[in-house]
Nucleic acid binder design. Sequence first.
DNA 1: TCTGGGGTCCTAGGACCC
DNA 2: TCTGGGGTCCTAGGACCC
Length: 417
Amino acid sequence: MKVFALVDCNNFYASCERVFDPRLKNRPIVVLSNNDGCIVARSNEVKALDIPMGVPFFEQKALIRKHDIAVFSSNYQLYGDMSQRVMDSLRRFAPDMEVYSIDEAFLRLDHLQPRDLIEYCTTIRTKVLQWTGIPVSIGIGPTKVLAKVANRVAKKQTGVFDIRDQKTQDAILKTLHVRKLWGIARRWAERLHRMGIETASQLRDASPVIIRKQLSVVGERLVRELRGQSCLDLEDVQPRKNIMSSKSFGNLLTEKAPMAEALANYAARACEKLRQQNSRAQAVYVFVQTNGFRETDAQYSNGLTCTLTVPTSDTRTIIEAAKFCLNRIYRPGYRYKKTGVMLLDLIPAALEQQHLFADSDQRPGDRLMATVDRINEDHGPDTVFFGAEGIHREWKMRCGSRSPRYTTQWNELLRVS
DNA sequence: TCTGGGGTCCTAGGACCC
DNA sequence: TCTGGGGTCCTAGGACCC
């Protein structure tokens, strides 16, 4: 039988902040989305105060002040680096592993004796905490979906929970609402509700054929996984098919010039990711939009795709293409909230089809880009950048309360006095 | 005043092929 | 009045995930 373990970091972003500031222990913490817009992570103390996930920050300000909640802008450099440390630690215990998200990984532990599993997972928890400072919970199950369910229980109990036993599954699935399952969100929960299905055990016992008609093959797989029939295996990391970079501006913009700067900056970020996975893009999509929440403002949104003659990962070419698109979709007279760029039709750099009429066997840009990437990796992001990205960057997003990038920026190292 | 960003997969329908 | 039977590829839209 297959054995899946889902390792999930507890309140990951909040835990990262605590690692470097022990004063935050037991203090409620929220972490905000980009631009300090929404609450995207909460410590247990905040969850206990019934402050929901994903709500606008400004709506909660009074409550936050009242309970002396520590507020952090998101610090993705820190979280990304901490994530890598956690994943590296896990890999030492289970080479057969899928990094599922920034704070979760599935492990295959089939090789262990069933009775040793709990002990082994307890050791994993202890070691990850010791090595990285991040607390994790582990759910064990015969399928990924059940391991996810087990993880929920683990979080509420002692940190490790095994759901492989049938009676245990019955007891837990009976009290679990379908909405809490991995793969069921609002729309599907509503549809299931109309079919009279509320709990996970009702869904498990439903007809796979009927569920397939309602929720496609994705729903059928979910039913089978709940029955202990493994349909989802560990997945290898595949190169991305699209790469997107977009952000809201710190303040609404009306002029084209600062929008073009922001766009160039996002394009440069997207190209870094593109080169990291050794791909080239064959098309670029650019969009602009106003702030839909401001109902009294005139609204406009538009997007345009531009095909490239030769697949490229050269930031200069992508910036040029992005500006070309922006020139065509920008309309004066609106207050813009956001722009973004998407790199499309990505292909491996090595598999590239040469263009009949383009001089593409020489790529002087490749060496330049590699050098730019290396400098920024060694000395921190933005050590060198393209002039088109601008210098003053009035469009830059708000991040008023970001903690130091302790582990990736030399001049922000933790000081001990 | 303030409302995130970045992905994936599946299906249906249309265009087109032989 | 009758109007084939397969395919593939692409796109848009809808659902989901963190």
